[in-house]
Design a protein around this nucleic acid. Structure first.
Lengths: 240, 240
DNA sequence: CGTGAGATTGACTATATTCAACCCTAGTGG
DNA sequence: CCACTAGGGTTGAATATAGTCAATCTCACG
């Protein structure tokens, strides 16, 4: 982990979606003076389940995972961390999960006590955190539906779809290409599958022309609609 | 649904755990004047996915489920609703889920706009809602681990354990009896299994002496520890 | 050039699902 | 009063799906 020089809030890429997004200018000045940036290399642990977590933070860039291990050693990833996601929990000093940087990750950090004080003084901050948390809760419940009821093919297609839709300008209908940040094993841990099953489903989706790839990580989706048809979502709840 | 006469907040069974639990006496007086009680018969729909939801509420008594149906008709229950759980989402007027009363359910209801105003005026209310939502989020993520990684036996044992621990005075070590509020089918929808598999696991756990029952719903757990050993939880995170 | 992480594929197996029959109990109506 | 029915539950046999174990491939990297 390395401390790096923070960006100005006004230049921050997650300015309009993170926990601070409904703050006013004077409030940003307070945040500026309290925040620090921390950067983690790909593969580094950001926090460990059961250990102290000294900072609350927002993901500025990069991709991380939150995971947990059962008694007998099976690992399961309970959430992805993408830019603007919040890490940690006000009022709790220990992490409930292992948090790991998948790519290089930059966090905008606040000392926990400081952030708790800021929340008490800044309704814009705490109400936005409530909103973010409610969004996360909806997403977690949607995810439970996927884990509980989807087939391996649907799970894999659904996750590829999520990556395909991220950073896609709304309305674009054609082919989409992107780089998968996760290994097959990490995908499997998230989907509740084995890495072999994930690999087989990638191959099957390629055989059926739903996706294409030369290297295992560089995915092209010729038709987002066709991919969506494989994903068996609920229909009304658009993929976040 | 029938309107019934509300209890006084000071006599409310969920007084110390619901969204209102950190309110002060004067704040309770405001809540008293705004709240209504609604009662639903077992089997009644409290809300439907995609439909307007006019009230935000807390479960005072009874058991409910939140569920959703995939395009092709598979139903999955994304959460149980037990006393003190909160229904609805400030800032959203449509329900994301089907909400159904499993037993008779009594709700303490607030008109949505009224509740939003109360939240803005009452930090004790909004901060408690944040806390409840964070708890729910942790529970939802723990549940994702169960759905993603547990075997049928572990899932069933884990859910029985949750019911066994609910309303159990801390420290009690001996046998526990309780009545299951859910049918085998409802359990299956929650666990991501079929009702036949759930039934088989009940039989297997009985054969192995982990649980006992005469009627399918009246469960006795001779040793909570032995049941816990079947549940394969994460170890540190106590079952809520 | 050797090594190792990540990925793919095959053969076999375990687990849960599907389809089906059957049981039990609590109504309900003739 | 009793036959009939329906909802909930259990169990069995056959099947499908994903998991396990193992071999092999590729590519980056020292």
């Amino acid at each position: 982990m390395t401390l790096i020089r923070p960006l100005k809030c006004s230049e921050c890429p997650i300015r309009h979606s993170a926990v601070c997004s409904s703050c006013t200018e004077p409030e940003f000045q307070v945040l500026e003076s309290a925040k620090t940036y921390r950067s983690y290399a790909a593969g580094a642990m950001i926090a460990e389940a059961g250990e102290q977590l000294f900072h609350l933070s927002s993901v500025v860039s990069g991709v991380g995972t939150m995971s947990r291990v059962t008694r007998d050693g099976r690992r399961h990833t309970v959430g992805l961390l993408l830019p603007s996601d919040f890490i940690g929990r006000p009022g709790r000093s220990v992490s409930a999960y292992d948090v790991e940087a998948v790519t290089e990750v930059t966090l905008c950090c606040f000392e926990r006590r400081t952030f708790e004080r800021l929340m008490a003084e800044t309704p814009n901050l705490s109400s936005r955190l409530l909103e973010l948390t409610l969004d996360e809760l909806d997403a977690a419940r949607d995810w439970a539906l996927v884990l509980g009821r989807a087939t391996a093919r649907e799970k894999v297609a659904g996750l590829i779809l999520r990556f395909a839709l991220r950073g896609l300008e709304p309305g674009a209908g054609g082919a989409v290409s992107f780089t998968l940040p996760l290994t097959r094993e990490a995908l499997a841990d998230y989907l509740g599958l084995t890495l072999e099953t994930v690999s087989r489903q990638f191959s099957a989706l390629r055989r059926d022309g739903v996706i294409a790839f030369d290297t295992p990580r560089a995915i092209t989706v010729p038709s987002v609609e066709a991919l969506g048809a494989e994903a068996a979502e609920t229909g009304d709840a658009a993929v976040t």
